[in-house]
Design a binder for these strands. Sequence first.
DNA 1: CTACTTGATGACAGTAGCTGACATCGGTGC
DNA 2: GCACCGATGTCAGCTACTGTCATCAAGTAG
Lengths: 188, 188
Amino acid sequence: MSRWEPNARGRLQQSAMELYIEHGYEQTTVAEIAKRAGLTERTFFRHFADKREVLFAGAGPLQELFVNTVADAPATATPMDAVAAALDTVAADFKGHLESARQRQTVIRANAELQERELIKLATLAAALTEALRQRGASDLTARLTAEAGIAVFKIAFERWVGDTDQRELSQHIRELLDELKAVTAGG
Amino acid sequence: MSRWEPNARGRLQQSAMELYIEHGYEQTTVAEIAKRAGLTERTFFRHFADKREVLFAGAGPLQELFVNTVADAPATATPMDAVAAALDTVAADFKGHLESARQRQTVIRANAELQERELIKLATLAAALTEALRQRGASDLTARLTAEAGIAVFKIAFERWVGDTDQRELSQHIRELLDELKAVTAGG
DNA sequence: CTACTTGATGACAGTAGCTGACATCGGTGC
DNA sequence: GCACCGATGTCAGCTACTGTCATCAAGTAG
């Protein structure tokens, strides 16, 4: 028998999410999160860099999925094609997790610090996408802009997905946004 | 004669900038900034919501300039045309301030908290742009996406402007990015 | 001229996020 | 059996940030 309960990190994530929902992010102290998880405040900070980071554990895997899909796209695909393929893959990955996504977004939308953290996660994702596109031979300029446009599409599609009351899938929102992007930039 | 030296806010901004450059953002305490400005820590927090905000006083006027230019664009202009016009106006406004922009970006790039704050300022700007485009009659979807694309162009152009060693103007970078955006979304 | 109000600042105490240093003690390898 | 490792606890401390009350020049009313 081991000295401690297993999965301290997971318990901290769950406790944090519960408390952020119950009382709000600002009203929750790290000490409370740790206590609910059966740990101390100091241990919280060994697992997560700060009070915000505990909500963003999924960012790493999401970025991997994005980057791998771009890397695996056929060599003939344009940069935007490769990004579109990644968006499809990611949309499939979110399928069935609408409710948890909604809860998380509700917490984040209620607090500016959390929005900041989400934005920098998306910016990091865009940087990783940029690098993946460069690996495929795109120019710096093309890679950077395509990545930013792709992330913009993802961000807006995601917001609409969790905000909508109808039954549209994330992948449908993404397709709509990609079409709209083409339309919006076509003129002139 | 008045009771205190005038322009406390400006003195705080200048002191903060100097100290962030001299010793770095993290190594600077708010008490030090206030002391250099001849004030107390408490007064710093009456002028700025937090230690980061003192670097972003220009965000408000910038947003106004963006929004007003979009609003004043001819009724026949497409949403992207209106945003392009705003980008031109903003580029003209930055002309001649390359060195101060560089200093500021150097400080921001060295610290994650400051990058987060910059990102949320850009997101707020995108939201304001979205609203301005909606006022012109654009749909929610079009307005949102055009605003985000425009801000992406601005962000990348600005980075290249302050990062480049050559003599290209911000407006040239913006034109190049707008062309590239069209090219990148045209395919398929 | 006096009294009252206003507004920017100072003084001070307190909370909470976050860090460094050291102790603890099951599990693991030799 | 012993040394080491790694996850956790304990504790002291710094600093960002807030609430509250005091201060006092300048403006305003009468």
